[in-house]
Amino acid sequence: MGRAGDINGMTCFKLAVAASVLAATALTATVSAPAAQADTGADVFLAMLGDYGLGGIDPATAVRVGEAVCPMLVEPGQNMANVASDVADALGRPLGPATMFTGLAIQMFCPRAVTALTDGRPFSFLG
């Protein structure tokens, strides 16, 4: 595939990740009244995975990989495709589910990235 195909593929991939992040944001915004005791971020993340049909992942592995997504995003030379590929390898899952997992992890563990992704800006922990 030529350069134009690579660029179009990357654009589609970025749009898919942004869509999954926005869908996850919409889902969590519609959650009903909070429980008597608030869930931890890990519990909410695991529940989100189940809601999106991404169950069957060892919970400790899911949280560990999910929390690693944000630091991977800011590594020099990394992009969304690389991160989703790394997630797929870490989870032993195909790229499609790993892309959804990556989007949910971004929404849960690095929400500032949601705004940056939808605005087309690079994401950075530094500001």
Score class of each variant (00 low, 15 high):
101 F>D: 06
52 Y>D: 04
9 G>P: 00
15 L>F: 10
4 A>L: 08
118 T>Q: 11
100 M>H: 02
56 G>Y: 14
91 L>R: 05
110 C>F: 07
49 L>D: 01
22 L>G: 04
93 R>W: 08
30 T>H: 13
123 F>P: 09
59 P>L: 09
72 M>G: 06
58 D>H: 05
57 I>V: 14
95 L>V: 12
125 F>R: 03
36 A>K: 11
9 G>N: 06
104 L>C: 02
125 F>S: 02
122 P>K: 14
85 S>N: 04
68 A>K: 12
102 T>I: 05
96 G>F: 12
45 F>S: 00
10 M>N: 07
80 M>P: 00
121 R>G: 09
34 P>L: 13
59 P>K: 03
35 A>V: 11
33 A>Y: 11
120 G>R: 13
93 R>H: 03
107 Q>V: 08
54 L>E: 08
112 R>N: 15
54 L>F: 03
109 F>Y: 11
92 G>C: 11
36 A>V: 07
41 G>Y: 04
54 L>Q: 09
106 I>F: 05
73 L>R: 03
49 L>F: 09
121 R>V: 05
77 G>W: 15
121 R>F: 12
112 R>H: 15
116 A>I: 12
4 A>K: 08
51 D>T: 04
65 V>T: 15
24 A>H: 08
96 G>A: 13
15 L>V: 12
96 G>C: 05
74 V>S: 10
74 V>N: 04
6 D>M: 01
70 C>V: 02
22 L>C: 09
112 R>E: 15
114 V>M: 10
86 D>C: 03
110 C>Y: 09
47 A>I: 00
39 D>S: 11
25 T>G: 07
29 A>H: 14
126 L>Q: 13
72 M>T: 08
2 G>H: 07
77 G>A: 14
14 K>P: 02
